[in-house]
């Protein structure tokens, strides 16, 4: 374990040093590929003037709102899709098809329908999340061994009780991985939306990235990319790691790293 940490740290340090050296010694164009120290200087400034924090806040708010809506709509739809033939042949097919659509493809539609508004952002994020959550939940419920429900029936469990106390927890591993996948899709679609939809109601990380390009400020572009990566990692640790640890402890196999 210790050697793994050391080798990881060594690798990234080496990468940074080589990059810095290449930039300072003029091996690469410093305008196009700014040195890590330039990026750091930008980040420091952006933290001080608050522009980074406010952009991150705007982005995370949009993300959470859209993601939660996607989950709240997607989970029950996934359950009924797994349970009823009618929903499987309708909503299920729709979800299967639209899931394959890269979420950035919703952007043109969203701009025409909602204009350059928060609603357009929201719409893109929900579309990016919803379908994969439906598919994951449906798969989860469908793969539950039927013996669980039979055993529960013999113990007097019926209807809603079976759903809440057997079907839902039994499909938890799939639901968590579906929610994780939904999160990844939401994150990607929001970035696409923020880069393409210029709006005045909130200045997010995607916009920061976009204007970095317009201003030819590559240290800003790379700095914001770095922040986006960090937020993605943090979300993974905060939102999903506890669930995955629980699943790993109880089920024994799933969700382990």
């Amino acid at each position: 374990m210790k050697t793994r940490i050391i080798s990881a740290i060594a690798f990234f340090l080496l990468l940074l040093v080589a990059w810095e050296a290449a930039s300072l010694l003029g091996w690469v164009n410093r305008i196009l590929i700014p040195a890590p120290s330039d990026v750091l200087r930008y980040l420091y400034g952006a933290v001080l003037d608050g522009s980074l924090a406010s952009a991150a806040l705007v982005t995370v708010k949009r993300l959470l709102l859209g993601y939660l809506c996607g989950i709240v709509i997607g989970l029950p739809l996934g359950l009924v899709t797994a349970r009823f033939k009618l929903f499987q042949d309708t909503i299920g097919l729709l979800a299967l098809g639209l899931q394959t659509l890269p979420s950035v493809c919703w952007v043109p539609l969203a701009i025409i329908w909602f204009g350059q508004t928060e609603s357009a952002m929201f719409f893109v994020v929900v579309m990016g999340t919803l379908w994969s959550v439906i598919i994951a939940t449906e798969t989860g419920v469908r793969t539950i061994p039927p013996i669980y429900a039979r055993a529960a029936r013999t113990m007097g469990s019926r209807g809603i009780h079976t759903w809440v106390h057997v079907m839902l927890p039994a499909s938890l591993p799939f639901i968590v991985s579906g929610m994780k996948q939904g999160w990844a899709f939401a994150w990607r679609s929001l970035m696409a939306a923020e880069i393409y939809v210029t709006i005045l109601t909130g200045f997010g990380l995607g916009h920061l990235l976009h204007y970095g390009r317009e201003l030819n400020a590559m240290e800003q572009v790379i700095g914001v990319m770095f922040v986006i990566v960090v937020i993605g990692l943090l979300a993974d640790k905060v939102l999903f790691s506890p669930w995955e640890r629980f699943l790993h402890r109880r089920w024994g196999t799933q969700g382990s790293r």
Binding site: P145, R150, A151, M155, G156, S157, P169, R250, W251, G252
Partner: peptide, 29 residues
């Protein structure tokens, strides 16, 4: 019915519950 309980070849225990909670499942009902 609760008057006839079944033991299956595959244990059919619920992996999301611990041992005690598995035994409690029928009792809770």
């Amino acid at each position: 019915g609760r008057d006839r309980m079944v033991m299956f070849q595959e244990h059919a225990l619920f992996p999301w519950l611990d041992v005690l909670d598995n035994v409690m499942f029928g009792l809770r009902l």
